[in-house]
Design a binder for these strands. Structure first.
Lengths: 141, 141
DNA sequence: GTACTTGCAAATAATTTGCAAATAT
DNA sequence: ATATTTGCAAATTATTTGCAAGTAC
């Protein structure tokens, strides 16, 4: 997770400026357990920055994704949900009960990727792996 | 791939009717190598069924997904793309050059799923695995 | 001071809904 | 015969853009 100092560096390296709005958007996404839509980010960001506009939220989410500070998560219903990005490559596990997103890592898919590359002739550039299930708290229904 | 007889059975089992429009939409998606957006399906379906409306395409795509005749594919840009569904569970490999979608199967993720379940306490219900890369024809750029 | 950013309002794009006419069974 | 389906136009929702005023550096 990017902290504020790192954010400032990242931003200035791309000649972006550190504004109250950008800080607020990052803080909201970075501190949330759930995946958030742009509208939800907007609502929550208003607490720290009441004058922020929805347009700015859209623009900022795009920048933060480009910088790798946050990640876009595709869910069945909403395809524009954002979650904090940790260092390195992670996969997501989404709870179908409460919607919380958990990251997991450490599983090596390279054998699979190599096999598919050999079988299809594709040059594999990336992958998405996303799991769905019920978190412990939501299994009691 | 669902053929027309199977489609008719599936439809009537859910008390849907077999119309020219539904046949056209299925034929378009089922016969396409690429993933198609609703608008693209609409354009192509007009060849077989000139009077079809975009609204009907949307409604029909939803029904066909529910019946399992086609599948929705999430791509970075468009989250409402449709591809033919084969029997069983498949994964997708999408070419970042030409957009073609290839299905692959036969890779066993159960070890990974079990490990994640043990580690997180989640009850895993499903997964998406989607790969991106360049197909042989698109590697020459 | 200057270039980047912002919020707003308006523009655009994507999807859904209501409804009377048409159609499959 | 009748319940489902259709196409259209209108409504809704999501996202983007233009621009003058504001702000970080």
């Amino acid at each position: 997770m990017l902290d504020e100092t790192e954010l400032a560096e990242q931003l200035s390296a791309h000649s972006y400026k550190l504004t109250r709005q950008r800080r607020a958007v990052l803080a909201v996404v970075a501190s949330s357990e759930e995946r958030l839509s742009p509208a939800e980010v907007y609502e929550r960001a208003k607490a720290a920055c009441p004058e922020i506009g929805l347009t700015t939220v859209y623009r900022t989410l795009g920048i933060l994704v480009k910088l790798g500070a946050i990640k876009r998560v595709h869910l069945d219903e909403s395809c524009h949900s954002y979650a904090p990005a940790s260092q390195g490559h992670h996969h997501y596990l989404v709870c179908s009960g409460c919607g919380n997103v958990i990251e997991f890592e450490g599983y090596d898919l390279s054998a699979l990727l190599d096999a598919v590359a050999a079988q299809t002739g594709f040059n594999i550039e990336g992958h998405w792996l996303q799991l769905f299930g019920r978190c412990p708290a939501c299994q009691e229904d």
